[in-house]
Simulated assay, not measured.
Amino acid sequence: MPEMRAKLQVSFVQEHFSELDGVKTKYSETVVMHAVCRTNGYSDTNGDDEDNTYAKYSPQADFRITVANPALFGQFKTGDKYYADFTRAE
């Protein structure tokens, strides 16, 4: 199977907290992403835009990650774009 690359944009980040004895502690973030496309949609007359290229060939994707590593908290911001590379694992 060939490798595949998707382009994703962060839709939102939800923070998760616990509270013990009045102390609130963040224990994770859920990062939700979707496949990219131009903000005003795909157009055959303007298919040169990279986001449109991804939307044309991978029109729908939803991606959800729960991050529990405190060093990564706050690293994913709404609107940021990322590539996700998929390679078959043995």
Rank of each mutant, 00 (worst) to 15 (best):
residue 28 S to W: 01
residue 62 D to W: 10
residue 53 T to P: 00
residue 51 D to A: 08
residue 46 N to C: 07
residue 87 T to R: 14
residue 56 K to I: 10
residue 19 E to C: 04
residue 90 E to G: 12
residue 44 D to P: 09
residue 90 E to L: 13
residue 51 D to H: 04
residue 44 D to Q: 10
residue 46 N to H: 11
residue 36 V to M: 01
residue 4 M to S: 05
residue 41 G to N: 09
residue 90 E to H: 14
residue 7 K to I: 01
residue 77 K to T: 10
residue 88 R to M: 13
residue 23 V to A: 11
residue 71 A to D: 14
residue 74 G to P: 01
residue 68 A to C: 05
residue 5 R to C: 02
residue 75 Q to N: 12
residue 23 V to G: 04
residue 16 H to E: 14
residue 82 Y to C: 02
residue 52 N to Q: 08
residue 62 D to Y: 07
residue 38 R to V: 00
residue 32 V to T: 12
residue 22 G to F: 03
residue 57 Y to A: 04
residue 90 E to W: 07
residue 33 M to C: 12
residue 79 G to T: 06
residue 17 F to R: 10
residue 29 E to V: 03
residue 71 A to Q: 09
residue 58 S to P: 00
residue 74 G to V: 03
residue 82 Y to V: 03
residue 44 D to H: 03
residue 61 A to Y: 03
residue 3 E to N: 13
residue 89 A to G: 06
residue 5 R to F: 00
residue 1 M to G: 12
residue 87 T to I: 15
residue 7 K to R: 09
residue 9 Q to D: 01
residue 57 Y to L: 08
residue 16 H to C: 07
residue 27 Y to C: 02
residue 71 A to M: 14
residue 53 T to W: 11
residue 29 E to W: 02
residue 53 T to V: 14
residue 79 G to P: 11
residue 2 P to K: 13
residue 46 N to T: 12
residue 80 D to L: 08
residue 37 C to I: 00
residue 38 R to W: 02
residue 55 A to N: 02
residue 63 F to H: 08
residue 44 D to C: 08
residue 67 V to C: 12
residue 45 T to V: 13
residue 14 Q to C: 05
residue 63 F to Y: 15
residue 25 T to E: 14
residue 5 R to I: 10
residue 29 E to Q: 08
residue 8 L to H: 03
residue 57 Y to V: 04
residue 48 D to N: 09
residue 90 E to S: 12
residue 50 E to M: 04
residue 4 M to Q: 08
residue 43 S to L: 11
residue 45 T to S: 12
residue 80 D to V: 02
residue 41 G to S: 10
residue 25 T to A: 10
residue 78 T to P: 10
residue 15 E to R: 11
residue 14 Q to A: 06
residue 12 F to Q: 06
residue 47 G to L: 03
residue 3 E to G: 11
residue 84 A to L: 15
residue 72 L to W: 05
residue 26 K to P: 03
residue 58 S to T: 05
residue 25 T to D: 03
residue 54 Y to C: 01
residue 69 N to L: 13
residue 62 D to S: 15
residue 50 E to N: 06
residue 25 T to V: 07
residue 35 A to Q: 01
residue 77 K to H: 07
residue 15 E to P: 01
residue 23 V to D: 09
residue 9 Q to H: 01
residue 66 T to Q: 13
residue 38 R to L: 04
residue 83 Y to C: 05
residue 10 V to Q: 03
residue 38 R to Y: 07
residue 65 I to Y: 12
residue 5 R to P: 00
residue 84 A to F: 07
residue 53 T to K: 09
residue 1 M to A: 14
residue 86 F to C: 04
residue 19 E to V: 09
residue 35 A to E: 09
residue 20 L to R: 08
residue 8 L to N: 02
residue 28 S to K: 03
residue 27 Y to M: 03
residue 46 N to W: 06
residue 47 G to C: 04
residue 34 H to S: 08
residue 67 V to K: 01
residue 23 V to F: 13
residue 65 I to S: 07
residue 61 A to R: 01
residue 41 G to Q: 07
residue 46 N to D: 15
residue 87 T to E: 15
residue 82 Y to P: 00
residue 13 V to Y: 04
residue 13 V to S: 01
residue 56 K to E: 14
residue 59 P to Q: 03
residue 22 G to C: 05
